[in-house]
Design a protein around this nucleic acid. Structure first.
Lengths: 205, 205
DNA sequence: GCGTCAGTCATACGTTCGTATGATATGATA
DNA sequence: TATCATATCATACGAACGTATGACTGACGC
């Protein structure tokens, strides 16, 4: 079962899974090579070090996500619609691939420098979203405010909802992984995001 | 300088700081006792184990935060005003005490069971907020929707903004620790939260 | 004065860690 | 067939880990 790919690929796949679920420090090279059924020396040989493997794992997680967001941002539509499409797409992606939010939040919560692939992901996504927001502000469909801060508010929702799945689970008292729950959560997030950034003549006093 | 308190208290203070900044696995008992200027055996003696010390550290972080939120929730005012006061108070607290969001997000991002004091914090805060939201829904000032999900949306904002300080810093291109930035960020969060939960006759199409 | 006992201390135990080393196997090229 | 780079393998190394142990210290009640 583990022999379908090359040693290098198997290591990367296993490492991505373990690092995501447990974090860098809680995963040893020996854990990885055991799960991948390869020799202890293979990680050093193929990646150079544990840290280099970690960065490669992050890269393999963040790249598809950033590509998807970029594609949605480039689609036609009004700024608000494109934001909604991005949030919807991001949430869908993250519900299937919990890697990015989990790793990002974990890395944001310690003092070590942000791994380069993660910093790149942030810059790409926030840049894309805040450009759309600025566009919406110019045509009057999005409320005033710092586009960068608004972008953080927008993108934080899918990230937080997914990373804090266990919070949501406690809050709802049900399993948030069920399909109908996912739909409910998605619609809730979309509605909240739209409300928090759309232009409205007046907010209820 | 480190002799002002008892050995036990010094260990707890140092451990809280280190665990918060680096995470459980990245901090060794030897790190802690060195920083606290106490003997290696002191942690085992006073707390029993590294894990027990970790839980004590979490407790010391979350307790004041939960107390503050509970106090704000019990103050008089309309539901929306109390929500705003809670968000404002939570943000102020978290800007000075980054412990709770950092540790919470880190713990949410791995497979291990949530440490009991953290689970308790979540339940207390989300319970308090969703009760206020339900009250606001009954008197028509807060929009319809699952109170628990709305509570997550509300409380996620101060947590995320604080935990993702480095995201905000990248997004804004400035140091978010500066006082004027903090004010800007606070007002932004308040506005976003109010918009996302307040009842409005109609959202802009 | 003298046990008693909570607290502190140096040190040791067994384990696991990341990485290094050198031998062996494999497969394409000549 | 001989050569040679690539890959895999079993081990070894020194360091750091959490925890255990037993000796020492000093204040207190008797």
């Amino acid at each position: 079962m583990t022999d379908a790919t090359t040693t290098r690929d198997r290591i990367l796949a296993v490492a991505t899974d373990l690092f995501t679920r447990r974090g860098y420090d809680a995963v040893s090279i020996r854990d990885i090579v055991a799960a991948a059924n390869v020799n202890l020396g293979a990680v050093t040989y193929h990646f150079g070090s544990k840290q280099a493997l970690y960065h490669a794992a992050i890269e393999s997680i963040t790249e598809p996500f950033a590509r998807r967001v970029a594609a949605l941002a480039a689609a036609p539509g009004t700024p608000l619609d494109r934001i909604e499409a991005i949030v919807r797409g991001a949430l869908a992606h993250l519900l299937d691939n919990p890697g990015p939010p989990i790793v990002l939040l974990r890395e944001l919560s310690n003092d070590r420098p942000l791994p380069p692939p993660l910093a790149a992901l942030m810059r790409r996504n926030l840049g894309v979203v805040s450009a759309i927001i600025a566009e919406g502000q110019r045509d009057g469909t999005i409320r005033q405010g710092d586009p960068a801060l608004l972008a953080v508010t927008v993108m934080s929702q899918p990230f937080f909802i997914r990373a804090a799945r266990r919070v949501v689970s406690v809050a709802l008292g049900v399993d948030p992984g069920a399909a109908d729950q996912q739909t409910r959560i998605t619609e809730h997030v979309i509605e909240s995001v739209r409300r928090s950034i759309a232009y409205t003549p007046r907010v209820v006093s």
